[in-house]
């Protein structure tokens, strides 16, 4: 039946929880495309039949109805394919904001080639945007200053306190802070760190915020 696989594809994505990214169904996508190819070819054939000379009125009507039906199936398949890819893209976008520019290997395996490409393009677009927004201070040759960059991904929670207590969840090793100091992060350590320093480490699951 037309459109069945497409509906199944959407349903599967819908069943996964909101921010989870289930493995890319390359097989199903190809299957749907084959179905669409079949429809396209059948319609092309019928188009020729319809234009043929001496065709009976009754047959022509039948052919037109069949074509219309196939066309509807085609639109539906297209719509499902777009919805599938678009929704996955939205989830991927959320990942960019929560995990940063590097995709963990576990998630990378669930992505298609095109999606990986999209992810790096999106990261680039975002970096370019942040650089465009960055403010260049009046340059004093004697005392060159760095531009004021607003990293949109760092400040995602309202800062209520400057320092927070964190617990180290994994053996991370040396971590360099913004002041240039190095801290050795070892599992089970308890630290009091500046919030801006550790916000992205918390999101990566290296640190845990303890109240």
């Amino acid at each position: 039946m037309f459109g069945q696989r497409a509906a199944e594809l959407i349903r599967e994505l819908e069943r996964a929880s909101d921010d989870a990214l289930p493995p890319y169904k390359a097989e199903s996508v190809r299957g749907i495309c084959e179905e669409m190819q079949g429809i396209f070819e059948a319609n092309c054939r019928d188009r020729v039949n319809l234009d043929a000379d001496g065709i009976e009125q009754a047959t022509a009507v039948k052919i037109q109805h069949a074509m219309h039906f196939r066309d509807t199936a085609m639109s539906r398949n297209k719509r499902c394919l777009i919805a599938y890819h678009y929704n996955r893209m939205e989830r991927l976008r959320n990942l960019r904001w929560s995990l940063g520019g590097i995709i963990p290997t576990a998630i990378r395996q669930t992505l298609s080639e095109k999606e990986t490409e999209w992810f790096s393009n999106y990261s680039k677009a975002l970096t370019n945007y942040m650089m465009d927004v960055a403010e260049l201070p009046d340059q004093d040759p004697a005392d060159p200053q760095d531009p004021v960059v607003l990293d949109l991904t760092v400040h995602q929670r309202p800062p209520k306190e400057y320092f927070i207590d964190v617990k180290v969840l994994v053996d991370y090793g040396n971590y360099e802070t913004q002041d240039g100091e190095t801290i050795f992060l070892k599992k089970h350590m308890r630290l009091c760190m500046a919030r801006t320093e550790c916000e992205h480490l918390i999101r990566q699951g290296i640190l845990q915020h303890v109240q």
């Binding site: 996508v29 394919l81 999209w118």
Partner: peptide, 19 residues
């Protein structure tokens, strides 16, 4: 850029299998 990339993602994922 975002829109161009998104179109490329959706179209590129299925383009090779379709007429």
């Amino acid at each position: 850029r975002y829109q161009a990339d998104t179109e490329e993602l959706i179209e590129g994922s299925v383009r090779t299998f379709l007429p």
